[in-house]
């Protein structure tokens, strides 16, 4: 039995926009799964349908073998949701937010309070427990939503961009936390725009674009299919134009910076040799993107590629 099985899922919003156009997806129990895709690809819509916030137009969703339309309550009990946008009452305190959410799943007061304490402590929010949630920082609010999603101890935890706007230190501690609960048996499905995050955490990924899954598989296997890698070279002296190097695609970013794309597995020694022959001295180098990012960008097209370059 799978944790999640989606078949032929379609969604057309009331304004006529087709957000999902036949999504098929399976996630194994215990998996750590990433759903990747550019802005507007349909990730949140898919998650909205799974978590009963959005009505599907067509298709079927099963959670642990339960059909979402005919056994909705069983499905709801199995899922914990961390949505993309903050959606708690900002005037309430974290403790009340968690105890209330627990109550909605039938967990009575005393147990709910223990759970609230446990998860607020785990997510390092215990010292804020009685203050109104609006006083918390963005990163704290994200963690509050993770704690809230866990109070009923769901079998499947779905996180829609849980680390957006979270600083690097806290992001790493969130990763460790998620890895821990995954080891304890919780299936995790997350979306993220940090591909490094997906590469570090996830075993399986699916890439969605324009409402369709365009690639799905094991992270390791997808990476082995990735055929190129690129580097950024900083040069000792500026060059006027990109040097022509046989077998490498070189572009000049700035006077003293080159972008080099090369087939995975080719020797870097050859590259340095060719550069040396043209009198170009490299003072430092780094990977332009991580490998999953490289793969992703090739798949979803050039638009994103451009914006990524600007971000670099």
């Amino acid at each position: 039995m799978k944790a999640l099985e989606i078949s032929g899922l379609k969604k057309t919003y009331d304004n006529g926009h087709v957000a999902l156009n036949g999504v098929d997806l399976t996630v194994d129990k215990g998996d750590f799964f990433a759903l990747l895709g550019p802005n507007g690809a349909g990730k949140s819509t898919t998650i909205g349908i799974i978590s009963s916030l959005v009505n599907a137009s067509e298709g079927a969703v099963k959670i642990h073998g339960h059909d979402l339309t005919t056994e909705r309550n069983q499905c709801k009990l199995l899922i914990g949701l961390v949505p993309q946008e903050f959606n708690f009452n900002v005037f309430e305190s974290p403790v009340n937010i968690l105890v209330t959410q627990a109550g909605y799943y039938g967990i009575p007061g005393s147990v709910a309070e223990e759970r609230a304490e446990r998860y607020l402590k785990l997510l390092e929010l215990w010292d804020k427990k009685d203050r109104p949630a609006r006083e918390m920082s963005g990163g704290m609010k994200r963690r509050l939503m993770i704690a809230r999603a866990l109070v009923h101890q769901p079998a499947v935890l779905i996180l829609d961009e849980p680390t957006a706007g979270v600083d690097i230190e806290i992001r790493r501690s969130m990763w460790t936390f998620l890895e821990d609960i995954n080891k304890e048996g919780t299936t995790i499905i997350l979306t993220t725009h940090y591909l490094e995050e997906a590469e570090t955490l996830c075993r399986n990924v699916a890439i969605i674009d324009d409402g369709k899954i365009i690639e799905q598989g094991e992270v390791a296997e997808l990476l082995s299919r990735s055929q190129y890698q690129s580097f950024v070279f900083d040069l000792k002296a500026p060059v006027d134009k990109a040097p022509a190097l046989d077998g490498f695609k070189v572009t000049r970013c700035e006077g003293n910076r080159l972008d080099v794309e090369m087939p995975l597995g080719d020797s870097l020694n050859t590259l340095f040799e060719l550069l040396g022959r043209q009198g170009i001295e490299v003072v430092s180098m780094r990977n332009k993107t991580n490998r999953l990012e490289e793969f992703f960008l090739r798949l979803v097209g050039d638009d994103e590629n451009d914006s990524e370059e600007e971000a670099n």
């Binding site: 916030l53 309550n73 709801k76 959606n87 708690f88 009452n89 959410q101 909605y104």
Partner: peptide, 17 residues
């Protein structure tokens, strides 16, 4: 309306209530 506007009505909609 507040629950709708601030989206915390979703807390109820995702639960088996």
């Amino acid at each position: 309306f507040g629950a709708k506007f601030q989206h915390h009505l979703e807390e109820l909609l995702i639960a088996p209530v």
